[in-house]
Amino acid sequence: MSPSDEQLFPGETALITARGLKKAYGRTDALRGASLDLHAGEILAVTGTSGSGKSTLLHCLAGIVRPDDGSVTYGGERIDRASEERLGELRRTDFGVVFQFGQLIPELTALDNVALPLLLAGVRRGPAQQRAGEWLERFGVRGQADLRPGEMSGGQSQRVALARALVTGPKAVFADEPTGALDTLAGEQVMTALVHTAREAGTAVLLITHDARTAAYADREVWLRDGVVDPGADAVTVQEAARHEG
């Protein structure tokens, strides 16, 4: 008998469950039946070489892209079938996303960039800016509050982007190569800040990386190869997938 999730993660249930995800862009299969579980509060690294489907997997899980086949379940809800309106709501409240290049809004200061998700969620400007300031503090970039993205270093911008992703208190943060554009030391500062803050807040993190040293910040790793989770790289996922598909 293969061990169940309950045996391997006692007391934990999956926050997000992906099963048999398939996604093609034109004639290119990005995902060819990928399955994985992201548990509440865990930090999960998804590694693999370029073109293995890592980013597509993240986009499907975060509700940015709809898979061609398979399912994504978040707290019992099939988000691969959810309306655009509902997906927008989830991205504003329950999910945070960070990309390789922070993708901050260049015209806004660091403080206003971080306050923006709160304003969109209906928080008034004063309290939103106060909370944004607290999050900049947690990521060690309070001193950069009045700077615009072009006036900050890559590492500072990325920490502002993390503050923006976490400011709404999301259940899950999706980070796509968050240190990919940074030198080693700046990358380590970003990862340390992300891991400490996510653990404190109990936020689950799905971390996409091709770099083993970045993946080593996570609690566990799944290895993606040619659009599927590599057998043996993560026993839980493989057994889970087999149980589901079998």
Partner: peptide, 25 residues
């Protein structure tokens, strides 16, 4: 190939331990 996967998993486990050690407050 299975041997390489198992070896990689062992390496990653050790890398997680070392990373936790150095990232500890």
């Amino acid at each position: 190939a299975a041997h390489l996967r198992a070896q990689r998993a062992a390496h990653m486990e050790r890398m997680r331990e070392l990373t936790a050690l150095k990232a500890a407050p």
